[in-house]
Amino acid sequence: MTARRGRTAAGRRRRAAATRSGQYLALLGYLIFLLVPFLWLVSTAFKPPRELGSIDPGWIPHDPTLANFRAAFAEQPLLRSAANSLLAAAGAAVLSVVVATPMAYVLARFRTRAARAATGWVVVSQAFPLVLVIIPLFLLLKAVGLVDSLGGLTLVYLVWSLPFALWMLTGYVRAVPVELEEAAAVDGAGRVRTLVSVTAPLLVPGIVATGLFAFITAWNEFFFALVLLKSPEKQTMPVVLTHFLGAEGVADLGPLAAAALLATVPGLVLFAVIQRRITGGMLAGAVKH
């Protein structure tokens, strides 16, 4: 009996070890699929034209060069487009957490019909194709002189980032114990006082993460910027990147890769910062049914 149990235990251990190796192999497969395109972009960005034109391009450039980056800045107004993107994205991020935090507070603490209707709408509006939104938005912004303006684009990004901001922030508010606020109320603090001096400080990390996420979303956005911004000096970075592709799709690969890589850096850095919080926030939102 004991001998038999010993055998099965050894067998189980062997099987567990085989499963583990299989898991590592599968994970490696996933990482290759996910990372190879990105690493190729990096490699292309540092290759001199001669290597880019060769029929046998290697992974590591033989003569790594920064010429592609210089060429990218010379070919298109990258710096100005980055500044435009920064302005629209930062504006949208700040506005979005400023207006979303109070509403998220209400959503988390009260059953207000207006607030719930707004949330329902935010969810439903996700299902509508952007073409149904962009035509009226275009006409509307044109009527008030906000077409081809970064201000107009910022407003659009604000509304566009609200669904996720509300979802995340509601989760963060729920994580703050109601008892803290009740204690403050007992001490005679008013609603606004309680919100400002008790709840808000505890929400700061969540608010920062939400704002950074809104920033990344707006920084990466393409469709609205493509339609709403016409003057070259106002265009954002994703729109300017498409100019590298050329009219016939014949692209100068080196500068194209260099510019694309630069446009990715802010998103990657910020995502590294908030990665845990995003996952955590989604988790919080998902748990509290």
Partner: peptide, 23 residues
């Protein structure tokens, strides 16, 4: 692995398109 697996999320769609054109 968790951090690397979400890299595509952080990238602009335009860059993803450009990157795969290079692939």
């Amino acid at each position: 692995a968790r951090a690397l697996a979400i890299v595509p999320w952080a990238m602009p769609e335009v860059v993803v398109g450009i990157m795969w054109r290079l692939v």
